[in-house]
Computed example of a mutant assay.
Amino acid sequence: MAKLTLTTIRDFVGEDLGTSDWVIVDQSMIDQFATCTGDKQWIHIDPDRASRESPAGATIAHGFLSLSLIAPLGMDLGLAPVDASAVFNYGLDKVRFLTPVKSGSRVRLQISMTSVEPKDNGRLLIKGNAILEIENSQTPALVAETLTLVVP
């Protein structure tokens, strides 16, 4: 895990910040996400139908559920400088959903820092490259360019 500070953050540009622990994306997590978002498509919440009709042969996580894992796993990897007063998800420049995450799969995050851009009032904009891997899959679930705003 990286130990970024406001003083050393630029030293990590171009560096891999690490790989997170595995997280299980189970049916309970998928169902909770469906309830929160109102996205209750059968491919996500009906295991019986999904096993019969889905190309994946099982229910799959919502793409945005997979995407939402980047923030907490990135924080676990130390993306936020330890001496910052606040760190905000500022957005995404590119996201590509490459492989569906089947219910019961384990995923983990690899993240690297591609740039740090100074903003007004001493704030910094971190651009990162995030890859959400699926255990035993050659192709990741998604790749994304992340933007994180750091407030000193």
Score class of each variant (00 low, 15 high):
57 G>V: 00
74 G>I: 02
53 E>P: 14
54 S>Y: 04
66 S>D: 04
53 E>S: 14
61 A>F: 08
54 S>L: 00
85 S>V: 15
55 P>S: 01
86 A>Y: 11
61 A>K: 03
60 I>P: 12
94 K>D: 15
91 G>H: 05
94 K>R: 15
92 L>K: 02
85 S>R: 15
63 G>I: 03
79 L>V: 15
93 D>Q: 07
57 G>R: 03
81 P>Q: 05
88 F>N: 06
65 L>K: 05
64 F>D: 10
94 K>C: 12
88 F>G: 01
103 S>I: 02
98 L>E: 02
77 L>S: 03
97 F>A: 04
84 A>I: 09
53 E>R: 02
56 A>P: 12
89 N>L: 02
64 F>R: 08
75 M>N: 13
75 M>Q: 12
73 L>S: 04
65 L>M: 10
100 P>R: 07
87 V>F: 14
99 T>R: 15
57 G>D: 03
69 L>V: 09
82 V>K: 14
68 S>Y: 04
87 V>H: 10
74 G>D: 06
87 V>C: 14
74 G>Q: 06
56 A>N: 13
79 L>W: 11
98 L>R: 15
83 D>I: 07
92 L>C: 14
104 G>L: 06
62 H>R: 08
91 G>M: 05
92 L>V: 13
100 P>I: 01
58 A>C: 12
74 G>F: 11
83 D>F: 10
53 E>L: 08
80 A>W: 04
63 G>C: 04
82 V>Q: 14
103 S>H: 09
57 G>S: 09
103 S>M: 05
55 P>D: 00
92 L>N: 14
75 M>Y: 14
85 S>I: 15
70 I>C: 10
78 G>N: 09
84 A>N: 08
90 Y>Q: 08
77 L>H: 01
101 V>I: 13
78 G>C: 10
74 G>H: 05
98 L>C: 11
93 D>Y: 02
89 N>I: 04
76 D>S: 15
56 A>M: 11
102 K>T: 13
72 P>Q: 02
102 K>G: 14
100 P>Y: 06
88 F>R: 01
97 F>V: 02
89 N>S: 07
101 V>A: 10
76 D>C: 06
64 F>G: 10
101 V>Q: 05
85 S>F: 13
80 A>H: 08
88 F>W: 13
78 G>Y: 11
84 A>P: 12
89 N>D: 11
101 V>T: 10
91 G>R: 00
53 E>G: 12
89 N>F: 04
94 K>W: 09
97 F>I: 01
101 V>P: 07
103 S>T: 14
77 L>D: 08
64 F>L: 15
96 R>D: 00
81 P>F: 06
78 G>K: 07
60 I>G: 09
58 A>I: 00
99 T>Y: 08
82 V>L: 13
86 A>R: 14
86 A>D: 13
64 F>K: 09
83 D>C: 10
70 I>V: 14
86 A>I: 11
68 S>I: 01
82 V>C: 12
60 I>F: 09
64 F>T: 12
98 L>W: 03
89 N>T: 08
92 L>P: 07
53 E>A: 12
102 K>E: 07
83 D>T: 06
67 L>G: 10
73 L>I: 06
89 N>A: 10
70 I>P: 07
74 G>A: 15
73 L>W: 00
100 P>N: 05
59 T>G: 04
98 L>D: 01
59 T>L: 01
70 I>T: 08
100 P>A: 05
56 A>Y: 11
80 A>N: 11
